[in-house]
Write a protein that binds this DNA or RNA. Structure first.
Lengths: 339, 339
DNA sequence: TTGAAAGCGCTAACAC
DNA sequence: GTGTTAGCGCTTTCAA
């Protein structure tokens, strides 16, 4: 069927070893021979068989990418975009990505992804929060691991994370610079590291601008930060009877929920209350008014996580390194200047 | 590192050939030997190396999955879900899926996905509309091909498609059964096969219930069926001054655009105008009123497309076969009974 | 019913 | 600089 290294060797009048050396950019090959070989490769449209390569080199050229089902099939393509970034970068480095999802209820007796059992990957990228058990099983098998958008609390791994603290700071600062001082924070479960960091950024911004932190203006006991919980969080704030002129929501979903609540209450936005979210999901743009938010470059996160993996595989890395990807403030109409 | 077939053979006191036969479910192996071998496999936690297998069997155990970038990273996870269905089914059959995206502007001198150049897949699944050129390049390389949610006009391939005609019929019928006779159809580019079929279903339903087709009630010259085009299509209908009590939109995005237009015009839905979409996207549920629609099981489409591929690979297929996946009517509050 | 051995396509150690 | 050759881990004849 398709040509092998033998065909190339024959056509270029060299041994298969020489072809292999050319393929692997060995500098000892003379320019003349290299050219002949490359020409033969070109003419035959030859591509080395990965299986054969992998068999001897003991490397598969594959990287596994794992996320939980619910994360990956969410309607906001957050992890999808991270994946695409990873795949894109992998292409450039002649790697393939094997993507699989796992149940969020992964446990002791769940099946591990087949590519880890079969050791058909050289390393694994874990995207988003995944069950501890999975992490343990993979580390037990000594497969290199890189986290993206999550880092487990119980150990120290290389990871690509959003610069949540800076993001939280920027969001809060933007409100402050527009004259706001009574700024509410609504967040999901504060134990989630991302949320915690955003909250941290919020607190630091307040402190930096000499505004006292008022815990009555914060809601951090909601569950997963989804639209309906944003709605509920607003309900709580109103029930407390607190007054405020601005809201920093820990993500756009909660901001959207808050917006919905305020609209139902017929509170004009941003005239009465300004609001800013986090993530820059697509829906944030099409809502009225369009939501100011903190943008995260998802593809970039994917790219960085692949690069981190590559460093590990080429053992250029000494210590588990963390990469924080920068965030950008996106100004839209949901924030008003007050005085 | 991890055990090989030799280790298993040694432990079970058999030759590696015997282990291989057990692995491949060869019936000639005695129960006793099989058990011994299986026990050794279990104890050693042995998994055969795919690379070694592939080298001799000349099969990679990989299936390529290609969609255009824009399709795959859309905020409605339509193709993502198809992919997940495919991947899920592939797992059960010990295949891996290699996912890659291509630019919608793929052309003569674009790079083919590396797995087709390297022949690192046994077959390819193409999801959604892809450039003709890509299809030609793949067929030229004689790689088995299965289409899902699209079929090119210029040739005959195995494909998994939505039963669009039945869907269009059901949607229209639902409106008719609620007493509507003046039913508008708004669609995107009618040359897209899916849209054309839905329009076909619409026409058949009208005919079946003896309602005359009124082309003034149809808009089929919009571009891609997106929200803003749904809005524009409604604008056109209103500009024409036609009267109607119901709308069948060729997909939910257009229905959402239409809804937006009607809301701005302060036309109460469903009291004045009923509306039904197609696809059952997530946004259709969270809009007010929730949109009646035609549901498509995306995972099922993915599963079916993998099965089709498997049939080809095991050459159980004589002719390019088409699979139509069924659709279901989802009743929500956007349709009112009139009399 | 099981084993011996050839060979899939490639890399890498070692000759020359 | 280039060639020879031994395997990588597995499947698959062919013998026994």
């Amino acid at each position: 069927v398709s040509p092998t290294i033998k065909d190339v060797a024959k056509r270029a009048n060299v041994s298969i070893a020489t072809v292999s050396l050319v393929l692997n950019h060995n500098p000892k090959i003379s320019a003349e021979t290299r050219h002949r070989v490359l020409k033969a490769i070109e003419e035959l449209n030859y591509y080395p068989r990965r299986a054969a390569r992998g068999l001897v080199s003991q490397r598969t050229g594959n990287i596994g990418f794992i996320a939980t089902e619910d994360h990956f099939s969410r309607s906001e393509p957050f992890y999808t975009k991270i994946f695409l970034g990873t795949e894109f970068e992998a292409r450039d480095h002649e790697y393939y990505i094997l993507l699989t999802t796992i149940s969020p209820e992964f446990s002791q007796n769940s099946n591990l992804p087949r590519f880890v059992l079969e050791r058909n990957v050289d390393g694994i990228i874990l995207a988003g929060k995944v069950p501890d058990k999975l992490v343990q099983e993979i580390t037990r098998r000594k497969l290199p691991l890189v986290f993206v958008d999550y880092h487990p609390p119980f150990d120290n791994f290389p990871a690509v994370l959003i610069d949540n603290i800076t993001g939280g700071f920027k969001a809060t600062e933007e409100l402050i610079k527009n004259g706001h001082t009574k700024i509410a924070f609504i967040g999901g479960d504060i134990r989630h590291p991302s949320i915690e960091d955003r909250f941290q950024g919020y607190k630091r911004a307040l402190e930096h601008y000499n505004i006292a932190l008022d815990m009555n203006l914060t809601v951090v006991d909601e569950d997963y930060p989804a639209i309906k919980n944003g709605y509920r969080a607003m309900q709580k704030l109103f029930d407390r009877g607190e007054r405020f002129t601005a809201i920093f929501a820990c993500n756009d979903a909660m901001a959207l929920g808050a917006l919905k609540f305020l609209k139902e209450k017929r509170i004009p936005i941003p005239e009465e209350i300004s609001i800013i979210g986090f993530d820059d999901v697509e829906a944030a743009l099409s809502v009225d008014p369009p939501l100011s938010t903190i943008r995260v470059n998802k593809e970039e996160m994917g790219i960085q996580s692949f690069r981190l993996m590559l460093e590990i595989l080429e053992s250029r890395m000494n210590m588990p390194r963390k990469v924080l990807v920068p965030v950008a403030l996106i100004r839209r109409r949901s924030i008003a200047l007050i005085d």
